[in-house]
Computed example of a mutant assay.
Amino acid sequence: MLLIIRTLLLSVHFTLASVIGLLIGLCRPFNPDNSRLCARVYGIPAVWIMGLKVKLEDDSVRHHKRSAVIISNHISNFDLVTFGLTVPVRTSSLGKKSLKYVPFFGQLYWLAGNVLVDRGNAVQAKKAMLTTTDTLQHKDMSLWVFPEGTRGHGKGLKPFKKGAFQMAITAGVPLIPICANNYVRGLNLNRWHSGTLIIRSLPPVPTEGLTIDDMPALIERCHADMAACIDQLDQEAGTTTQRT
Rank of each mutant, 00 (worst) to 15 (best):
T244Q: 09
I20Q: 01
L197A: 03
M129Q: 11
A125T: 06
T82A: 08
V117W: 04
A164D: 01
L189S: 08
G84N: 09
L143D: 00
F78L: 15
L210S: 07
T7G: 13
K161Y: 03
V19Y: 13
H223W: 14
N190V: 02
D214A: 12
G43K: 05
C229D: 13
F105R: 05
D58G: 15
D118Q: 10
L52P: 09
D225H: 09
A237C: 05
E236D: 15
S92D: 11
W144C: 05
R200Q: 14
G152Q: 07
T150R: 06
K161V: 02
T196R: 13
P45I: 04
G51M: 00
S11W: 12
V54P: 11
L56A: 12
M226G: 12
S92E: 12
R191A: 10
A224L: 09
Y183E: 04
G51Y: 05
D140M: 02
R90C: 05
A17D: 03
V173N: 05
Y42K: 01
A237W: 00
L2S: 11
G84M: 05
V69M: 03
F104W: 10
T86I: 14
C179R: 07
E57D: 06
L10E: 04
D225S: 13
D214Q: 01
L16P: 07
A171L: 07
R62E: 13
A39H: 10
H13I: 00
K53V: 10
P174R: 05
E148T: 05
G154V: 00
T86F: 01
I230T: 09
T239I: 03
R62H: 10
H13P: 07
V145Y: 03
H64F: 15
L175E: 08
K96F: 11
D231N: 13
W110S: 11
L233F: 07
W192T: 04
V205I: 15
S72D: 03
I24Y: 12
T135I: 00
D134P: 00
M215F: 06
K97F: 01
I70A: 06
V41Y: 10
N188M: 06
R62D: 10
Y109R: 03
L108V: 03
P147D: 01
D118P: 05
G84R: 05
L210N: 03
